[in-house]
Nucleic acid binder design. Structure first.
Lengths: 231, 231
DNA sequence: GTCTATAACGGGATAGAC
DNA sequence: GTCTATCCCGTTATAGAC
């Protein structure tokens, strides 16, 4: 966020001719808030479109229209389409990885996993677009955001691998391969976001349906926990 | 395939001026084989590119280059880009759904599920591009192949739902929700194809590594079977 | 900061020679 | 059947008025 804003701030310095002494700090802060708000709106529109139609399937014009700004104006806030896309991914990465980050060796593994599934299903229900965006990006080999994404993932996963290993050493978990357990949790929970179109087509329901949400959560917890708690 | 070929055959009739009586049946058959072969090469190139870069991220030019034909020539075999894409999906649908189709009420459910996981992992190892192609298509709401794809899926899934229900009625399976079991198997096995880039980035291995393949298979079977066999 | 106009480019599809 | 040349459109990005 900080980095992404550097540019707009630089441009603003050039573009708005100041009287001697410049505007008050309050005025500057207000302007900055308006700038941030507009960036937020544009990023929101970009998220919806990129996650549905992909990077190449979405035009800057479409994003501008959805965000209710002109294309020229959009390209004042983001240097080009690539930067808009990268900003979007960078901003969402932290929140997208949050549920896994919560894993802690002090927790009971069953609680931790139940909690993870719950959090991830809520995210899949409320923010399916984010999930789809990362799905698309990773599936295509992360061509744009690339190394940054994988490097972040790797740091987190290495960290959580040791947590799972501790649980196993303490006899609290069956000897599963940590990587596969993590992939397993990712795959099953994200499925309901990434393939919501298919899930809805086949079952007629989405995670927004209370009963369906509970059913998914129970099914996943039952299967996973039965398979990984010490026998 | 039959439908897709109608057009080329029509065009061939128009394009190649025949002497009275026309070419021998043997000659016609040979030509047809060459036509089929060329279509196959083009479809193969299209599969690799579409599954990696998506429909909009791939140009007809790139496909032509990879298939070693000119763009003009490619568009002689496929009316346009959309038709090429739809032909590809239609042709792969049957083989892609084959592993699930094998589910049979006479089988032991543990055997059936072990067999499914094995088949699907082999497919994920040997034909990851097909898996990614369907993943992309379904994730984007199946805009092009659309209703045809969902209709096919629905027929198959409804069929297998009753198989699973029978297993449960016979006490051979814990009372799982059939849909969720199916989603579960899809999600976990396809993960290794669709996210192979991520899997490799994090573990340093792919399904082509013998030991890794066995590890994945064992992990999946252990977890799933422990969770769904009658307790 | 915001808009319109337009330059510059790439892609899909067709025409027509061979 | 195959190729090259070309048309035409949509798209990105910039220039410049306000």
């Amino acid at each position: 966020m900080a980095k992404a804003n550097d540019k707009s701030r630089d441009d603003a310095d050039l573009a708005s001719p100041r009287k001697r002494g410049g505007p008050s700090e309050a005025t500057q802060a207000r302007r900055q808030r308006q700038v941030d708000e507009k960036r937020r709106v544009i990023l929101g529109a970009a998220l919806e479109l990129f996650s549905t139609f992909g990077f190449h399937g979405t035009s800057v014009d479409q994003i501008a229209e959805r965000a209710d700004v002109s294309k020229g104006n959009l390209l004042y806030y983001f240097r080009n389409k690539d930067e808009l896309y990268a900003s979007l991914l960078r901003e969402l990465l932290v929140v997208w990885l949050a549920p896994l980050r919560a894993f802690d060796p002090a927790q009971d593994p069953a609680d931790a996993i139940r909690g993870y599934i719950h959090q991830k299903l809520i995210a899949s229900r409320d923010n399916p677009a984010e999930s789809r965006l990362f799905c698309l990006e990773i599936m295509q080999g992360a061509p744009i955001f690339g190394d940054e994404l994988i490097a972040n993932l790797k740091r987190l996963v290495d960290d959580k691998r040791t947590v799972i290993e501790q649980w196993i050493a303490q006899g609290k978990l069956a000897p599963v391969t940590p990587h596969h357990l993590i992939f397993f949790l990712w795959a099953t929970t994200q499925h309901y976001a990434d393939f919501s179109f298919q899930v809805e087509g086949l079952t007629g329901k989405t995670l927004r349906n209370r009963a369906f949400f509970a059913e998914v959560e129970r099914s996943l917890c039952d299967i996973v926990l039965a398979g990984i708690l010490p026998h």
